[in-house]
Amino acid sequence: MVPLSHYLALGAVVFVIGAAGVLMRRNAIIILMSIELMLNAVNITLVGFSRQWGDLTGQVLAIFVITVAAAEAAVGLAILISLNRDRSVLNVDEVNLLKW
């Protein structure tokens, strides 16, 4: 019997790790992976709440989150591939043409 607070704490920790990864890393692929981590942290929270309430809405929402993650991964990787092809960079701070 796992209490709800455990799920929430786990979700929070993973979310913060993911957020730190997004802000800290230069490599764009790892940034995308960190976003996946954050989405999954939300899933943990949703599933925990779903169990607490005995309501499946949380799990349905988690399925939608996975859908969005799949779409995000496809488009994000496509952007990275075209970026890599045109300018052969993968580090986000080198993509600064639009910077003022």
Partner: peptide
């Protein structure tokens, strides 16, 4: 959404 992402990914890459 998935369909749009699929088309978008193909067009971009």
């Amino acid at each position: 959404l998935l369909l749009a992402a699929m088309i978008g990914a193909i067009v971009l890459a």
